[in-house]
């Protein structure tokens, strides 16, 4: 087993009197898909926002490669190698695929201080990434507006790879996709992990999670209530953790 890329120790987040996350300990390993499951309001979104630098934890710490880090903005998280693919993807439909992949950090050649684009290099780089991901998009110059939902996910993943992300957080990547598209995104997710990235997948769809995840963590009411290797568990058990019907969860909730 690899050494963990990121360790969260006792991460707690309070919003006033409300405790959204309470003492979450977990490890994220490179080359592994980790699924976060939980009902609405269970704390998984708050947790990824802490990872992405959008929230700073009220308590606890994050360690990357064993070194404690604090993120004061999403930019800090990005420079530490954490890329978040938001539900709304943050793509500009009027620009081409390669322009989107490089948006905000274009390859450029400065002439008298004016940043001219190096279109050819950007195009080649994106074509390479798309091929590597087997995304079946032939033209990196096509406008993103003409792509399907799954292809847009592929573009967003390319963006993350291009930032040399070591940890990619995917927030409900299959929520709005048709069946065939979902398959494609799941295989992209798998391929991302095979490339050595750590992947955190948030999903409501247990079938999807069982298809790609190596490890499954269940959140409930701001706590981590279960951590299972996929092969040691089954969907029924996970559902009982999510709903709180599992005896372990009951015992835990009674204790508090």
């Amino acid at each position: 087993m690899n050494a963990p890329f990121l360790i969260a120790k006792g991460v707690t987040k309070r919003f006033g009197a409300l405790t959204a996350l309470s003492e979450v300990d977990l490890e994220i390993r490179s080359g592994e898909v980790l699924a976060l499951l939980g009902d609405n309001g269970a704390g998984k979104s708050t947790f990824i926002k802490v990872l992405a630098g959008a929230h700073s934890p009220s308590d606890g710490e994050l360690l990357i490669d064993g070194v404690p880090v604090t993120f004061s903005s999403p930019k800090d998280a990005a420079s530490a190698g954490i890329a978040t693919i938001f539900q709304e993807l943050a793509l500009s439909e009027n620009l081409s695929i390669s322009e989107n992949v490089f948006l905000g950090r274009e390859l450029k050649r400065s002439v008298l201080g004016v940043p001219f684009l190096r279109r050819k290099e950007m195009k080649e780089r994106v074509a390479g990434l798309l091929k590597e991901l087997e995304a079946h998009i032939s033209d990196p110059e096509a406008p993103v507006g003409s792509l399907s939902g799954g292809q847009r996910q592929a573009v967003a993943i390319c963006r993350a790879l291009n930032l040399n992300a070591k940890l990619v957080i995917m927030d409900e990547p299959t929520a709005a996709l048709a069946v065939a598209e979902t398959r494609k995104v799941l295989s992209l997710t798998r391929r991302l992990a095979e490339r050595g990235c750590a992947v955190v997948l948030i999903s409501h769809n247990i079938a999807d999670v069982f298809e790609v995840a190596d490890r499954i963590i269940v959140f409930r009411r701001g706590r981590k209530v279960a951590e299972k290797i996929r092969s040691d568990t089954n969907p029924e058990e996970i559902v009982s953790y999510i709903t709180g019907a599992h005896p372990d969860v009951r015992a835990l909730e009674k204790a508090n």
């Binding site: 793509l91 500009s92 439909e93 009027n94 905000g104 004016v114 940043p115 684009l117």
Partner: peptide, 17 residues
Amino acid sequence: TSWGRWVYAMGFNERSA
């Protein structure tokens, strides 16, 4: 230039920009 791309990107979808 990348400035030009920024103008188009923010013009179309300011949030993503």
